[in-house]
Amino acid sequence: MATQTREDISSQLLTFIRESFLAGDPEGELDADTPLLELGILNSLNTAILVAHLGEDYGVHVPLIDVTATTFKSVRTLSELVHESLSRK
C-alpha cells in the first residue's frame, strides 16, 4: 500500500466515487478537481461511507476533526490526504 502513488490513489477514489455515489458516472463528468462538497456529491451520509472506505481499503482512519472542506474538497485533495497518511506509516 505504502508504495502507491498519488495517481494510483486518485484513480481508485474516482472509481469508488463514480460507482458509489454517481451511478457509474455515465457521462464521465467526475474528475480529480470536481468540487465534491459544492456539488453535493459528498453529503454527510456519503462522506461517512467514504471515510469508512478509506479506513477499510487503505487503513487510513480520518478523525472527525480532519473531515474538513479543505481535505474533502476534491478527489485530488483526498488523494493527497491518503498518500500523506500512508507515507507516515
Binding site: 468540487p35 462538497l37 459528498l42 453529503n43 454527510s44 472542506a69
Partner: peptide, 9 residues
C-alpha cells in the same frame, strides 16, 4: 459560513 463547502462549511 462557507455555503460552497456543503455541510462541511
Amino acid at each position: 459560513t462557507a455555503p460552497s463547502a456543503g455541510y462541511l462549511g
